[in-house]
Design a protein around this nucleic acid. Structure first.
Lengths: 209, 209
DNA sequence: ACAAGGCTGGACTTCACAGTCCAGTCCGAT
DNA sequence: ATCGGACTGGACTGTGAAGTCCAGCCTTGT
């Protein structure tokens, strides 16, 4: 981990992690072998083990960290701005759009439920991500109470938990059913207490919820 | 599937499915091999392939159906009674208690995210389960509107989606963090619009949410 | 320029595990 | 009682994937 790494080496390592993350996202972790990774990242077995001496497990841990970072980075601008009227709608639209284009390929659920149980190291990474995410949302709720549209009687931490659960649960249900309404509806409901949001998306593709 | 099955054969098949389900629940699907199943169910390879000619994949599909059935059966009495004042609290307590004792071993998430992506057949089973579950809850909401505590302005299908997402998301977060509050809080929030529920459980084991 | 050590290629080893096969036993109907 | 088919045991095969090894190349610092 804390080995000497030249610029070239760091670039190669990064290429491996990003390429593997891509594969894991699209196929699922257990459908990705070292040979797939080799092919996708133009590397050799020895490179894989050079940068990740503990092999596949260590690589997947690095992928988990990478993906956790991506999730927050994607939302960073919106999360920081959470609070004022309109900011919730913007964030909600960004989240929905993100998952719409990702389809069933959720980086987190791939790791949480595929690798989490087997690898405690990954559970920790996911737990950290959820905690950070939760904190950011709760901060937004508090800002909305101070200067924004939200009533101050709400318990910010609990509201944040509800919002986060709506997203996680919505994604799970969306993955199983293919219907993004299962993400939109619960998320909108969870946000309703802060600032009512509206669905400006295309005509719903499903007849019923 | 539609083969002749004597009583003895049916019992063996059932033993295999139940034993495999147990293993999948505790270890995760990809940590369960045919030899583990053999050992746990006191069977031989040929028995496994006798009852599930398509091998592991077919067996896991049978396990998925079995587990989906269990989920509904566990809640059946509560789901049918959903509507009147107090019925929501009872159901909520049953759900929370169920997941508290199960801990991280959720039969569904094991299947949804571990096998679902790879096996379309399992996705269908999970989607059916979610649809049935959703319908039962929505029916309960409608009963609560007709004779119970809920306002009739609610859209039952949307409320049901929110409740279901709160459970799914809460379980995901609970699995990652080990904190059952992440299930209780969102579920209570989702139910608040119908009938405010209270947490009568033991003192929270975590300092913060 | 020239070591030292990071970096790379790819063949090789090892092993776990799904799936096959066949010989043999048990059960149920006639 | 006996015949057919369901049922069972366990050895065997084949494959795919993780991890090892070592020889050789490129970079960097002096």
């Amino acid at each position: 981990m804390t080995r000497a790494l030249t610029a070239k080496g760091a670039a190669t390592r990064q290429r491996i992690v990003a390429g593997t993350a891509e594969l894991v996202r699209t196929r699922g972790a257990d459908q990705v072998g070292l040979d797939d990774i080799r092919a996708a990242t133009a590397t050799s077995k020895s490179q894989l083990f050079h940068y990740f001496p503990d092999g596949r497990a260590e690589l997947l841990r690095a992928v988990a960290e990478h993906e956790a970072g991506e999730v927050l980075d994607d939302q960073q601008p919106f999360l920081d701005g959470l609070g004022p009227a309109g900011s919730w709608q913007a964030w909600r639209d960004a989240v929905v759009e993100k998952y719409r284009e990702q389809g069933v390929h959720c980086p987190l659920s791939a790791l949480t439920t595929q690798l989490g149980p087997a690898d405690p190291g990954i559970r920790v990474i996911v737990a950290d991500l959820l905690e950070t995410w939760h904190t950011r949302i709760a901060d937004g709720v508090r800002r909305a109470q101070a200067d924004g549209p939200a009533e101050s009687s709400l318990e910010a931490d609990k509201v944040a938990s509800s919002i986060l659960a709506a997203i996680q649960g919505g994604v799970v249900m969306m993955q199983a059913t293919g219907n993004i309404e299962f993400l939109k509806v619960p998320l909108d409901a969870a946000l309703a207490g802060i600032e009512p949001v509206a669905d400006a998306g295309p005509v719903p593709d499903a007849v019923t919820m």
